[in-house]
Write a protein that binds this DNA or RNA. Structure first.
Lengths: 175, 175
DNA sequence: CAGTATCCTGTCCGATACTG
DNA sequence: CAGTATCGGACAGGATACTG
């Protein structure tokens, strides 16, 4: 990315975006969750130019989302398999998937997530495993953590002040 | 975006990326969840160039994530507040957040999500509300939905065939 | 099958200056 | 405070040709 370097930034969202912020990266991972591993299968399914595919795959290997593995000597053939980190990212893609299906499927859902055990469609939600509650609304908030810097703390304090001045009824509306 | 037009594509992930696929969009929304609504507050917190901020805000309003609202006549002053759709996207950002904290916080978490009722840190997971199970592993799969086109179905069938030939032990590994 | 090599275009983004 | 206007650079992404 050609913008400001965010590697120094503490926000995990910004950090994450630096690894997989590109358009194709997400789509490649999406197909990886389908079980796709081969270069040509990616290329064909995604309709992506081969040089771009090379670049994105290389990057994904670099940041530890995929592993380039030789599955055949003579001739040497490689495939791209998910690492633990890459597999763990599936929850993000599925959250995205669920949101997309909720908001951009006026003509019906073309693809759905199912539970193969029950056979039913699943509409996944983000929950707190400790309480079982759905994570939404003002109850859940992002605050400085144990490794917070002074900058973070002061930024957060500034926000709190602004909140005092005008209660954000706007945000709480959505239950 | 200067790449292939995906608006015709049925995948909700691709569709979603078209709305908020840009780098700053996600970060702007992240700050909106903090309660930020004003142009200058966004600019200062994000360190973004004003023209870029204008572009991204405009886009986010266009796609229905934010609403531009006049909060003062004489002089006219505007603020950007989350719509339902924008608020709903928070689960995606939080999934991203959680993943980032799991994988890129070697020196400790600078920010954390907390439950303000219990006061405890929350590590949210994606679950199926119907069964209460965590959505992960091969049990959950994406398949053609009710509005699937022939293209989707045949692509899916093709994948199934490939799966028969080589069971993807790779993907199931990760439990 | 799994890429590499080249060339080109669009646009994301930053920097800076200016305005009601 | 909330932007607009203009400029330039970097790179994502596309198209195409070629290789072991």
């Amino acid at each position: 990315m050609q913008h400001t370097d965010f590697s120094s930034m503490p926000c995990p969202v910004a950090r994450g975006l630096e690894q997989v912020g590109e358009w194709w990266s997400i789509l490649i991972l999406r197909d990886a969750y389908y079980g796709v591993t081969r270069f040509d299968e990616f290329r064909e399914r995604l309709g992506i130019a081969p040089n771009m595919l090379t670049r994105r795959l290389k990057k994904l290997v670099e940041v530890g989302m995929l592993e380039r593995r030789c599955y055949n000597q003579h001739p040497p053939r490689y495939e791209y398999v998910l690492t633990d980190r890459g597999r763990d990212f599936r929850s993000v893609v599925l959250a995205f998937f669920a949101w997309g299906n909720r908001h951009f499927a006026e003509e019906g859902r073309a693809v759905i997530l199912i539970d193969t055990v029950t056979g039913k469609e699943v509409e996944p939600v983000l929950t707190d495993p400790a309480t079982g509650n759905v994570v939404e609304g003002l109850r859940y908030r992002v605050v400085p953590g144990p490794a917070a810097t002074d900058v973070i703390r002061s930024r957060h304090a500034k926000l709190e002040q602004a909140r005092q001045r005008s209660l954000p009824a706007d945000f709480s509306q959505g239950k």
